[in-house]
Design a protein around this nucleic acid. Structure first.
Lengths: 239, 239
DNA sequence: CATTAAATATCGTCC
DNA sequence: GGACGATGTTTAATG
C-alpha cells in the first residue's frame, strides 16, 4: 500500500489487476460485487476500472481526483474523491492482488490526428459546393445565428438555403435541428427558404418527418473524402 | 510475439505497455505518432489503447476483433480487424516494450447495479405522481406513440399532460423533444394539452424556448431519490 | 465558467 | 438487425 501511494506520488502509471468490489457515489450511484478487474491509475489522476469484457469501463473517475488508500478489516481499500464539480467518490475494496506494475516516466506528446469527421465533411463541401447542389452558391461556413450555427449557408437558384451535415446516419434530432433552423430563417427573412440535410443516410421516421416538412435529403459519405493532408498540417499551412 | 499470440489464444487478458504508433481505418480514420501507451487486450477480443492522460482511449477496437501480429522491418506490428459491421482496422507499430503481463482465468460474473438514473426517476415519480404536480393523475408510464414514448402521461385538472424527464440538466434537444410530443398530442386529441419538463435544471436558452412555447419546467433532482432496494432485486420481486 | 454540439461515441431495449 | 434514447457519457470549441 505504501508502495502504491509512493508510485502515485511519483507520477507513475499504475496497473493493478485484482479481485475487488466497488461502490460509487456521484452523478448516479453504483455497486458491483466481487470480481477480477484491471485498474489503470494514470499520472494525471484519472482512474479507470475495466472488467474482463466490453469497451466501457465498469467504473472510473476523471481527473482531478484525490486518490488515497487505507487498511480496512485487514484489506486495502482504494478511495478516490473529486473535490471539484461534479463531486464524486469511489471506493474500491481490494480483496486479492493478481498483478501490480508501476511505470515511471511514460511520455506521450503526440496528438491524435482524426480525419473523415463532420468537420472534414464541412471543409470539403465548402470547397466543393457543387456536391451539395449543382446550383449551390456558398455564402457562409458556420453561419452564426441566435439558435446556433448553420453548417453551410448559401443560395440555390436565388433561394436561401441552410445545410445541416452529419458524418453518420442522421436521426430525429438532426431533422428537428434542421427544421428549427429552416423555420427561424424563413421567419427572419420573411420569404421561402430551403433546408437540406446531408448525411450518409437517414432513418425511416426522421426521413418521413423531413419530407412532411418540405426539407430535402442529399446522400454524402465521408468515406468518399480524399484528404490530402492532415487537419493539423492544413491549419499550419493556412496560418 | 509468439507468446503474445499464444496468450491471446488462451483467452488471457494481456496488458502491454509500449512505445508505439497507431493507424486506424473505419468509421473515421486516425493516425498518431510515437508515444508511450498502455494497451489492454481482453479475453473477448476487445482492444483498448490508453495514453498517459484522460478518460477516453486514444484508440480502440470493440469485439469481435481478429487480432494478429507480424514482424515488419524488424519490429512487431499488432493488427486488429473487425470482420462484421462496422468494418474497421487498426495497426499498432510496437517500437519498444516497457511492460508485458498476461493474466489467465480472470473471472467477473457480477453485474453493475446502477441507480439514481432517469429510469429510477421515472419509477419514483410513477409511484409518487403528486411530486410532478399535486393534481397529477398518472395514466401511463412510457406511453408509446408514433414519435417515440412519453416518459409519463396523465392529466392535470382534466387537461392531458406529457411529461419529459431528464436526470441531468436539460438542454435544447430535451425541449425540442417535449415540444414535438406536445404538438403531436394536441393535434392527435384536437384539444389543448400540457407539456412538462422535469430535470435538476435547464439551460437559459432552452428555458426561454420552453416558456415561449407554453411548456412548463419542474425541478427534480435524482439525488433526492431514496432507493430502498436495487433495481435487480426489484425486478425479481415484481417477476 | 456555462453552453453547445460532435463522437470511431457505447450500450441496452424494443420492434 | 435497425432504430431509438440514456449515459456517472467525455471532449473540444466558443462566448
Amino acid at each position: 500500500m505504501n508502495r502504491f501511494l509512493a508510485d502515485l506520488g511519483d507520477s507513475k502509471a499504475v496497473v493493478l489487476v485484482c479481485r475487488c468490489s466497488i461502490e460509487y457515489w456521484g452523478r448516479s450511484r453504483s455497486v458491483i460485487g466481487s470480481g477480477d478487474r484491471i485498474i489503470l491509475f494514470k499520472p494525471d489522476s484519472t482512474l479507470i476500472v475495466h472488467s474482463v469484457s466490453g469497451f466501457k469501463p465498469v467504473n472510473w473517475m476523471s481527473a482531478p481526483t484525490d486518490i488515497s488508500a487505507e487498511l480496512e478489516e485487514g484489506g486495502v481499500v482504494v478511495f478516490g474523491q473529486r473535490t471539484v464539480k461534479p463531486f464524486e467518490e469511489i471506493k474500491i475494496r481490494v480483496e486479492g492482488v493478481l498483478g501490480y506494475e508501476a511505470y515511471p516516466g511514460l511520455s506521450d506528446t503526440e496528438k491524435l490526428d482524426l480525419t473523415h469527421t463532420e468537420h472534414d465533411m464541412r471543409d470539403y463541401l465548402a470547397a466543393h459546393p457543387s456536391e451539395v447542389d449543382p446550383l449551390f452558391r456558398l455564402k457562409s461556413v458556420e453561419y452564426h445565428t441566435p439558435l446556433g450555427f448553420f453548417d453551410l449557408y448559401g443560395k440555390i437558384a436565388g433561394k436561401f438555403v441552410v445545410v445541416e451535415l452529419k458524418s453518420v446516419r442522421a436521426g430525429l434530432p438532426a431533422v428537428l435541428q434542421l427544421k428549427r433552423y429552416r423555420d427561424w430563417l424563413r421567419e427572419h427573412l420573411r420569404q421561402d427558404v430551403m433546408g437540406v440535410l446531408m448525411a450518409p443516410g437517414v432513418a425511416a421516421n426522421p426521413l418521413a418527418l423531413l419530407k412532411k416538412e418540405g426539407l430535402e435529403f442529399r446522400k454524402f459519405n465521408v468515406h468518399k473524402l480524399k484528404i490530402s493532408r492532415s487537419r493539423h498540417t492544413l491549419d499550419e499551412w493556412m496560418g
